[in-house]
Design a protein around this nucleic acid. Structure first.
Lengths: 187, 187
DNA sequence: CGTTAGTTTGAGAGGACTCAAAGTCTGTGG
DNA sequence: CCACAGACTTTGAGTCCTCTCAAACTAACG
């Protein structure tokens, strides 16, 4: 839990009282590689903090899995769309390694938002950061050539290639596994 | 300004005091079609509320303009990345019609966030909503065929096609203007 | 050492791109 | 009311990238 607290401290200062309250509603979760943390068709009830491991978010579009997000240590994870709208989401989140997480339930978080201003601020700041990251991803996906998208990823987040199966990365980059394999071969 | 207030009211209840304070820092802005509201290389200093008109956000990638966002009446507009990080952004925002906007400066907004809890909450909720919209866009862009992306747009936001030049829409959909024109011809 | 998951290689088809040119629409001034 | 300029859209032809389907290869693990 200290890992989470020191992660939070990077973005905003919480009072001891707020940290204590936050700590009291966090539940530890350990799951093994391959299992699904969040599945489509359900209302997402938790935000998770990923302390160890990595995972991917994916959609089923037209019979194929579209991976659009990876998370590694020290990141918050949820199906934000479903979590925020309280509607069933289309998103799946799958563990790519054995993971250690901390979960906070929707109702608990809303209560904290209302009772603790600094946690409300934390929520806003985290949201801003996630928006910004998604936007960066979005723009880099607009590179026309598959090769450019790959090289952009290589420059921006090479660690992804070291920990994630190629097929998922290819999907993340909007190309087939075969194309990505050929691009790498020619590097 | 009432337009803005009633827009806000849809998402969260602000106290009269908060509305009054918000109103006191808003500056009206009127600009004509074609002008740039935000340009790359600068730190974005404002969030705008678009009361009338429409505009687009675009990046210059590799010598060509990539339109990735449109905004119409009753939307907040900013270069969120630059606004949040306080770093120069790569984003441009251009008016596609004559527009009426309300501007709020960064410092004013931060002050309001600190002094008025309900405005902080509003900021968080707006961020959540914008994240969700971007994510939806992101996923719909993963449709493989250009035709599918077009039809998805047609189902989701047909008004865009009625108000925005085809070239921008094509860029928004990640295809050339010629391709989009041919797709429409075959519908 | 066999099984399975993951990656690479090959061949052929087709969609989207580029460059180029011809239409179409709209508003302005004569 | 017409003619024209400028912005926008469509059409054409040829090329190339990426896709699909298939099969072989490699690595990891029990």
């Amino acid at each position: 839990m200290q890992t989470l607290f020191s992660h939070i401290r990077k973005y905003c200062q919480l009072s001891d009282e707020s940290l204590h309250r936050l700590g009291s509603v966090l539940k530890p979760v350990e799951l093994e590689k391959g299992s699904l943390l969040i599945t489509e068709g359900k209302v997402c009830q938790h935000v998770y903090f990923l302390e160890r491991g990595c995972l991917r978010g994916f959609y089923n579009v037209d019979g194929r899995e579209i991976t659009y997000w990876f998370a590694f240590e020290n990141n918050f994870v949820t199906s934000l769309l479903s979590f925020v709208t309280r509607l069933p989401g289309m998103e799946n989140i799958q563990l790519l390694e054995d993971c250690k997480l901390w979960a906070i339930a929707y109702d608990d978080l809303q209560t904290l938002y209302q009772t603790h201003t600094d946690i409300n601020t934390l929520g806003r700041i985290m949201n801003e950061r996630y928006y910004v990251m998604l936007e960066e991803r979005f723009v880099s996906n607009h590179f026309r050539e598959a090769r450019d998208r790959y090289e952009n990823l290589l420059a921006r987040a090479p660690h992804i290639l070291q920990r994630v199966p190629l097929g998922h990365v290819a999907s993340y980059l909007g190309m087939t596994q075969e194309t990505l394999s050929r691009i790498r071969a020619k590097s």
